[in-house]
């Protein structure tokens, strides 16, 4: 296509978010002769940039300094917009995340661009890009054509494989000037969420336990998995009724109605009242020793297994995964 492409590398905990590094692969396909550049914003920008530069970015811009110490939509939008100008890029790629959802539309609007969020498939059709993205809670896929001009795409992590290492590109700091408008909001603090306090209704990942957990103590193994996935622990009515968990954690018709992206039901049979509260979940994993349990009828993935054995193993696997993506 011959366009210059800028990839926004999201920094998470001092590391590059895997989903954004993977986009260098797509960037190379789109660029097809044009330049692939990347921008990293935040306190760890330099370290991350050095890593990213090895994976196909001809130039990596780093934006550091006090206004970028913590994420803030206005400052980050300004930084990425200026990086776009610096790179003379017409395509901006970002990994779908809460952060990119928060500032990318500002960049797009400022650059008078077209935008598609959370793409799960991207295809190059001459000068145009054809993307697919889910709508209506994944009940429907829409295929959108984005003709020329400036385009902003956020792409779901793991849609592409990360490129291998090659000749490192250049890394250089980009000096970004903020205007008065950019000072209209500032981030005061950023604290890790999740843990016991997380509300099931707000959580994007929920690990739910039923009465078969038997004790409050046993819920800890669910909490460990939930923590690893930045999620919350939920409970069935029977578990709440038995005093294993407090009512605010109850998922179901008469408790909380939840629509997380991932719902892991451990030792939950799937009584109709419970299903009513979690049907909107996007991906459901069911773990139950009874293979005829109704929950399997609602699940995407099912494991006929003892949760006390399986859940800690899953937690380990997720930990391994998180370690590997560092």
């Amino acid at each position: 296509m011959g366009a210059n492409v800028l990839v926004y590398i999201e920094s998470r905990g001092g590391r590059a978010l895997a989903g954004s590094v993977q986009l260098l692969t797509l960037a190379a396909q789109i660029a097809a002769g044009g330049r692939v550049e990347a921008v990293v914003v935040g306190p760890d920008a330099a370290t991350i940039a050095a890593n990213v530069a090895k994976r196909g970015a001809a130039a990596v811009h780093t934006v550091e300094g006090e206004p970028f110490a913590m994420y803030g939509a206005l400052a980050y939008a300004r930084a990425v917009e200026q990086a776009m100008k610096q790179a003379q890029a017409s395509v901006l790629l970002l990994a779908t995340s809460e952060q990119s959802r928060d500032f990318a539309p500002r960049v797009a609007a400022r650059l008078n661009a077209t935008m598609a969020t959370d793409c799960t498939h991207v295809e190059i059709a001459g000068d145009a890009l054809r993307v697919q993205r889910p709508m209506y809670a994944r009940k429907c896929m829409v295929e959108i054509e984005m003709p020329g001009g400036v385009r902003v795409l956020s792409v779901r992590p793991n849609t592409f494989e990360a490129p291998g290492e090659g000749t490192p590109g250049s890394v250089s700091p980009l000096s970004v000037t903020l205007d008065a408008g950019d000072a209209k909001a500032r981030t005061l603090e950023s604290v890790r969420s999740g843990g016991q306090a997380m509300d099931v209704a707000e959580a994007d990942v929920i690990v739910t336990g039923g009465q078969s957990l038997k004790t409050t103590e046993n819920f800890k193994i669910l909490q460990e998995l939930a923590d690893e996935l930045d999620g919350a622990v939920g409970a069935t009515r029977a578990a709440v009724d038995a005093g294993l968990q407090p009512y605010p954690k109850q998922v179901g018709l008469t408790g909380k109605t939840v629509t997380p992206r991932l719902y892991i039901a451990c030792g939950v049979d799937g009584a109709v009242q419970h299903l009513a509260g979690m049907r909107g979940s996007k991906i459901v994993v069911a773990i139950n020793t009874k293979k005829e349990a109704p929950i399997f009828g609602e699940a995407t993935y099912g494991c006929v297994a003892d949760l006390f054995t399986l859940v800690p193993l899953i937690t380990q696997e997720v930990k391994k995964l998180h370690g590997a993506s560092a």
Binding site: T254, T257, Q273, L275, A276, G277, R279
Partner: peptide, 19 residues
């Protein structure tokens, strides 16, 4: 408040189970 889910589901989906 625990009745709201059933009310809403009956009104919109024609059953109390949000199905």
């Amino acid at each position: 408040a625990s009745l709201n889910g059933a009310f809403q589901s009956m009104e919109r989906a024609g059953n109390p189970y949000a199905a």
